[in-house]
Amino acid sequence: MVMDTLLRRKIYGNGGDSKMRMVVAYITIFLLSIAFLIATDMLTGMDLTTAVEILKESFSVTTREENMVIVILLLLPLLIPFVTYMRGRRKKTGSLRNPD
């Protein structure tokens, strides 16, 4: 019974590993999307600095409210792993505060 549980943890990992994989996958997809946009501009004949300037220009014309929405949407996938981490920490210690 114990060996079976250990083998399952080794094969499937514990819950924290899958959350971290989700975060890494999200960041990887985000970076690949940015790289794809830059590569597409470079294939059309632009140099690297021009392609990066186009990305910067698209975000420089947004309003403060639009920037807040962009930041919230970028941080939203990180919320679930953070909440899971905090719940696990609370279960281990009993609370988030350390008694003095």
Rank of each mutant, 00 (worst) to 15 (best):
V2G: 12
V2D: 07
M3F: 05
D4A: 13
D4R: 14
T5E: 15
L6Q: 03
L7S: 15
R8Y: 09
R9E: 05
R9D: 04
K10T: 05
I11G: 01
I11K: 15
I11Q: 11
I11N: 12
I11P: 03
Y12M: 13
Y12D: 11
Y12E: 12
Y12P: 00
N14I: 02
N14Q: 11
N14W: 09
G15Y: 03
G15D: 11
D17H: 07
S18E: 09
S18N: 09
K19T: 00
K19P: 00
K19A: 10
K19Q: 07
R21E: 05
R21D: 15
M22Q: 09
M22W: 02
V23D: 01
V23G: 00
V23C: 06
V24S: 09
A25F: 13
Y26C: 07
I27K: 04
I27S: 04
T28I: 05
I29T: 10
I29D: 14
F30V: 12
F30Y: 11
L31P: 01
L32V: 05
L32E: 05
L32C: 13
S33P: 02
S33H: 10
A35N: 11
F36I: 07
L37A: 14
L37E: 07
L37C: 14
I38C: 03
I38S: 03
I38M: 02
I38G: 03
A39V: 02
A39E: 12
A39I: 01
A39L: 12
T40H: 15
T40I: 05
D41N: 15
M42H: 02
L43V: 07
L43G: 10
T44G: 06
G45D: 05
G45T: 03
G45A: 02
M46N: 15
D47V: 01
L48T: 06
T49A: 12
T50K: 08
T50N: 15
A51I: 03
A51H: 01
V52T: 06
V52F: 03
E53A: 13
E53P: 01
I54Y: 00
K56M: 08
E57A: 13
E57I: 00
V61G: 09
T63P: 04
T63Y: 08
R64N: 08
R64Q: 15
R64E: 07
E65H: 06
E65V: 10
E65Q: 14
E66A: 11
N67K: 11
M68Q: 11
M68V: 10
V69P: 00
V69T: 15
I70S: 01
I70P: 00
L73H: 06
L74P: 01
L75F: 12
L76F: 12
L76V: 06
L78S: 03
L79N: 01
L79S: 09
I80T: 07
I80S: 14
P81M: 00
F82Y: 04
V83P: 00
V83R: 06
T84M: 05
Y85F: 11
M86I: 07
R87M: 14
R87S: 11
R87C: 11
G88C: 02
R89Y: 12
R90I: 02
K91W: 03
K92P: 01
K92H: 07
K92R: 13
K92Q: 11
T93M: 13
G94Y: 14
S95P: 03
S95I: 00
S95T: 01
L96Q: 04
L96M: 13
L96E: 04
R97D: 13
N98D: 10
P99L: 08
P99V: 06
D100T: 10
D100W: 06
